[in-house]
Design a protein around this nucleic acid. Sequence first.
DNA 1: TTTCTAAACGAAAACGTTTTCGAAAATAAC
DNA 2: GTTATTTTCGAAAACGTTTTCGTTTAGAAA
Lengths: 343, 343
Amino acid sequence: MPTTLKEIAEKINVSVSTVSKALKGYADVNPETKKLILKTAKEMNYKPNSFAVNLRTKESKTIGLIVPEIVHHFFSSVIKGIIAQAEKKGYLVIILQSNESYELEKKQLELLQNKRVDGILVSIANGTSKFDHFKEVIDNDTPLVMFDKIAKIIDCSKVIIDDRKAAYEATKYLIEIGCKKIAHFRGPLLPQNSIDRFLGYKKALEDFNIPYDSKLVYVLNDVSFEEGKYYAKKLVEEHKNVDGIFVNTDLVAIGAITAFNEMNIKVPEDISIVGFSNWFMSTVVSPSLTTINQPGFKMGKEAFKVLYKEIKAKKKNEEFRYKKVVLDTDLIVRNSTKPILKS
Amino acid sequence: MPTTLKEIAEKINVSVSTVSKALKGYADVNPETKKLILKTAKEMNYKPNSFAVNLRTKESKTIGLIVPEIVHHFFSSVIKGIIAQAEKKGYLVIILQSNESYELEKKQLELLQNKRVDGILVSIANGTSKFDHFKEVIDNDTPLVMFDKIAKIIDCSKVIIDDRKAAYEATKYLIEIGCKKIAHFRGPLLPQNSIDRFLGYKKALEDFNIPYDSKLVYVLNDVSFEEGKYYAKKLVEEHKNVDGIFVNTDLVAIGAITAFNEMNIKVPEDISIVGFSNWFMSTVVSPSLTTINQPGFKMGKEAFKVLYKEIKAKKKNEEFRYKKVVLDTDLIVRNSTKPILKS
DNA sequence: TTTCTAAACGAAAACGTTTTCGAAAATAAC
DNA sequence: GTTATTTTCGAAAACGTTTTCGTTTAGAAA
């Protein structure tokens, strides 16, 4: 049904080659015939058959993206950034979700490679502890960039924030407003960023001479609102005088706030809470949540930019080095933390 | 680099045709040679070149999806549903966002057609008032299914909720709890669902003998949190004794609640609020928001199912009729509305 | 033996591009 | 007028499949 080069060629009695060359701006075609070709191509509403182009050029101008979860403020912001940047460069984005599962992640990585996408962007699932599937991608010469949740062990480009530093800042702020006994709701054991956030928390305690108590660290599993409520209750059952919590993710922090509200524990008077990620929700919860702003949209754009450079470099067989982009975060002070102490 | 049929064929001295046929389970290949072919294919890690398959079969097992906005609780739920269902059938999903703009929507529709996706799923932008670009898609014989924000005028399959009925229920509930003067923050003028929600609101007033006052209807533009705050303030400036509002979308309703909280107007004692969509956020705002639950994930799954059937039918040149799927909604009562009156 | 049928295979076309290379025609140089 | 050079074009291969249609061979039927 759609017009082909051949049909254009037959219509004006030239060869398929010249039509192709005219359309692609080659120099060895007479300006007159070129004009005619362009005109008839437009008249016949010619659109190159992308299947044929893909086969011939061995590229699809499509990238794959795997995120752990789509219905998620941070990840949807990243997705938006990736798509926006990709579109600028004429790339389309196929999105897959791993649901935090290693098996799904592995399967989807294979799916994308079989589709022969030009590159892959991935944020690793919480359930992933083996990384061979990523190594395979790299060995297959498919450009791969990790963002947010990365694997330290895999040698590839990465776009991240400095989770450790951000967590340090958050904890430090709790200390600065006068908190003496600070708990941490940390993410699952595996993902690098929950490790780093934990380490930042611990380092801040050390630096300010607050004894670290492992009993004050609660390990989240599914990082949900409900878990926030659950561990908030557990915390007050198991400990007295806790006056600050640094929470791995806003959603969980909001769960905690909700639980404290229900238990008539005053936030921030009795306990101050700092979240992480700056979900929009954090502005509407009461009290609004002090948190670390994590630039999702920007991270998406940067991740695509890095991937794009790798794709281009590989196409031209140029050398290139893996890049590590670290994005800035900042502390957003709202009402879930006490006012700062005057010294 | 990757193995081809030809390489397998050469290795075991058969023709490309037999290799292909063995791999695809054709009957006219000797069980012995078939076994050998399967074995060597596995050994050589053969993966069919999807570019070639696409070209040959004229299908890409890929669909396109256009949503007005990705960072949006409802739409991200829909996306999740679509991807989940598509994956089951071996389809991948390319996602594009129109940012509520007609021009972008049109451009992206063309992008997807040029990529020759097997079908397109779309939720129409608020800015769209002409629909020829959709007609073109249909004329081009590309299966097209609209969901949530549809165009009545375009003849194609649709997956929606009964916005009018849901809005009627929401407004009726406000009346039942005793509200006498009910405002409506409606969506922009164009999209069908904001029209329908408005009509449902109006019908409920009529049926219960409450005079309709167009001054109580405020037209939102960008349907944001800020707009919710803005119109909440405007409402109390311009009217006395308004005791109920039916709001087009949760996000806006939450903005309104926030504004009322700031103005020390008590929700629900002074004014009851019903939202629409049941964003997760609505459970954590204070007071929590009474709203209409809109099944995003299910809508996504259904939308893909309908599209899939059309793709299959068109491939086999079978007749088929456009389907209209209407999903159930329900009222979720929380704390932004007064308790129900006892009669 | 001859003829027929069925099983097993392969040649080749087709999908629609891109791009190399050689040929022809036109122009320039001498 | 001859030779060299440039312009302009087209043939053809290649990308890797799928699928039709013939051909070969072996065995069955006669």
